[in-house]
Amino acid sequence: MKKYAATHEWVSVEGKTATVGISDHAQDHLGDIVYVDLPEVGKSLKKGDVFCTIESVKAASDIYAPISGKVIEVNEELDSSPEKINEDAEGSGWIAKIEMSNESELDSLMDLEAYKKHCEEEG
């Protein structure tokens, strides 16, 4: 199951683990990404916390945790190849895996169709 936050992060759920990243729409808006400040493994997050900062040629942007939980793995490849997010934001450009502490939060996120509409309205 894949869901999106209004702040342009995606969550893909398998069991209790959520893989998170930024949407393709978001990477397109940020432009060429040059640096990803990854969260620390073991860190506890509340939904809405800033858990990562992404620097592109345009700006530095905060990325918000779309769900609460504990960071159990980060995509260390992004350290040396931040461009992975531009190339495949919703696949190999994932940012972190989070062990969810409150799965019901998923209900407040959008499915792809609702997210697309949200992007259009924002644009």
Binding site: D32, I33, V34, Y35, E55, V57, P82, E83
Partner: peptide
Amino acid sequence: RLDEATASR
């Protein structure tokens, strides 16, 4: 046009 991305990376 300069390659800003590579220059930063």
